[in-house]
Amino acid sequence: MMRPDSSLFSRRADSISRADALGALALRLVTYLAMGFLFFPILITLMVSVNPQEFILPPSGFTLEWFRQAWTSDTFVRAMGVSLWLGVAATLIANALAFMVVLAMVRYDFRGKALLNLLIMSPLLIPTTIFSLALYVFFARLGFGSGIPALVIGHSIHVLPFAVRILTASMQNFDLSLEEAARNVGAGPVRTMVSITLPVIKTGLVSSLVLYFVLSWNDFPISVFLAPAGWTPLPVELFSYIKFQYDAVGAALASSLILISIVVMVVIDRLSGLRRVLR
């Protein structure tokens, strides 16, 4: 009886391990190239925003003059006020809707539950520009087209899937025996919700509120389709500015939005973890 050639198996194992190593190296290289492609424009924007000589690179020094001009411009300050009001309104509406939806989906089984979840997550499956255009056509058929109500509703729908994801992660880890204990000592549904449920999931609530606000604050497609004349959010105002003004003020304002978003991501990661939010 012939014995298998151990050297043949060894050579095959070596070739497989080399192929795996080459595959891992290629995947890592592609990942680094993709990250560089995504982050290089951000790096250029940050460099331009602190360069005294505007768009001449590499930077010849460091200045915050462009940031000062951006944050003291009447046009941008007014647009910031619009975005602030819009972000707060959309955040509160989306958070309230998401909380009620998550309570129903986590605690109860009902017909159409999977369809409801798919419907809520559908804005994540559709390109934002197409989604924004569809909202504009829908509201136009209702007779009021672009306007403040349409804009607030559009932003609320846009951030709702993220709201549902974060609150679902918080509610799935909630111990229902805490509510049962509260009801056993005479607490009603509202008292139980305010005294037990909300304090326990407050980390998820705070994380979701901050994330919704930043998503609404930075949103451009929905705002450009639904914002009424004279009520322009900051991203749309910034886009209009950089189309006609060739200076570093726009880069400074864009850098401010980038830095604010980074700070928010760090805060959310410290509060509840980005993996729980994004999974």
Rank of each mutant, 00 (worst) to 15 (best):
A90F: 02
G154V: 02
P58N: 11
L257V: 09
I93R: 05
M1I: 06
P233S: 06
F40H: 06
G154L: 01
L92D: 07
I242W: 02
Y241R: 09
L259K: 05
V77Y: 09
A114Y: 06
S195N: 09
T232K: 13
L57P: 03
L135R: 03
V82Q: 11
L46P: 06
F239E: 08
L29V: 15
F67R: 07
G250D: 07
A114F: 10
V266M: 08
N218L: 03
P228E: 07
F220A: 04
T192V: 11
T197Y: 11
D5G: 04
W217P: 01
V277S: 01
S17W: 11
L29M: 12
L274M: 14
R3M: 12
L142H: 01
A98K: 00
V30T: 14
V50A: 05
T72N: 14
I16R: 12
W66F: 13
A134T: 10
T203F: 06
S60I: 08
V88G: 11
L64E: 06
L38V: 15
P123E: 11
G87D: 10
D74I: 11
V164H: 04
L124E: 06
G154S: 02
A140D: 08
D109W: 05
D247Q: 06
S195H: 13
V206K: 05
S122Y: 04
E54T: 15
P233K: 01
V77W: 12
S146G: 15
S60P: 07
P4A: 10
V137P: 02
A150M: 00
L29D: 01
L57Y: 08
S240A: 13
A24G: 08
G81N: 12
L22F: 13
N173I: 03
A21H: 05
M35T: 11
F40W: 13
V101H: 04
F76N: 09
S146K: 11
G61P: 13
F162I: 04
F76G: 08
F110D: 08
R28F: 12
R107C: 10
S255A: 14
S223P: 03
L84N: 04
S73M: 10
M100F: 15
D247C: 09
F76K: 08
I42Y: 03
V224D: 07
T91E: 09
R12M: 14
P52E: 07
P189Q: 13
L115I: 15
H158Y: 15
V266G: 00
F40A: 12
A252S: 08
F131Y: 14
T31Q: 09
S83Y: 09
L64N: 06
F39W: 08
F131S: 09
A94E: 09
T45A: 12
F220T: 04
R275K: 13
I56C: 04
V264N: 00
A182Y: 09
S261L: 01
F174P: 05
M265C: 04
P161D: 05
V206W: 09
V164L: 07
L97M: 14
A252I: 12
V185W: 10
M193C: 12
L25D: 07
T197D: 06
M80K: 07
L209F: 13
F39P: 00
G145V: 00
S240R: 12
L135C: 01
L135V: 06
G23E: 08
L205S: 07
L46R: 04
Y246I: 13
S208C: 15
G143W: 06
V50K: 00
A229C: 00
F62R: 09
N51R: 10
F144S: 02
